[in-house]
């Protein structure tokens, strides 16, 4: 089967791409659309580095076919900041020191965003459950949880 054209919305913008049937959404975003903020980690859904938001829900983009994104809406880490202004979650991660090697960060922030979109004022338990699909080996997660709490507070004030 040859490449097929798909149309999807990425970070609010309609995009077209020619994709192979065996191409993953990670590959579509990184290799075709140049959105390399989506990290390619384990490839089998164990680490959460490739997390993106698909129609409002987080998914491991390594386990979604590019073809399955046809007609759908994808938010990647590149879609959060407004110009030079960081999204409150990004700013909170920077301020709290929640970023070390940074490889898990895009996926972690997107999981946090999906959580806050559904639950604007989460408890600590809701935060840890919401981030439990994103492995981080550097931080011990403490400052990540603090950052999400901080961002939730700031976003509700705004």
């Amino acid at each position: 089967m040859s490449k097929q054209a798909i149309i999807l919305t990425v970070n609010g913008v309609a995009r077209q791409a020619l994709v192979e049937p065996n191409q993953t959404l990670t590959s579509l975003l990184r290799d075709e659309l140049g959105l390399t903020g989506t990290k390619h980690g384990c490839g089998v859904g164990d680490c959460g580095c490739c997390t993106v938001i698909l129609d409002g829900e987080t998914v491991n983009s390594c386990l979604v076919l590019a073809m399955q994104a046809q007609g759908r809406e994808v938010t990647t880490i590149e879609g959060l900041a407004k110009g030079a202004e960081l999204h409150p979650l990004q700013q909170a991660f920077v301020d709290a020191g929640a970023i070390q090697c940074g490889f898990c960060t895009p996926g972690m922030i997107l999981s946090a965003k999906a959580l806050l979109d559904h639950t604007p004022q989460p408890t600590r338990e809701e935060i840890t459950k919401g981030l439990s699909g994103n492995l981080c080996r550097c931080t011990g997660y403490e400052k990540i949880v603090e950052a999400v709490q901080d961002a939730a507070g700031k976003m509700s004030e705004a």
Partner: peptide
């Protein structure tokens, strides 16, 4: 089951 990302799929 799994993680939030896995449960979503």
């Amino acid at each position: 089951l799994g993680s939030p990302q896995v449960r979503n799929r």
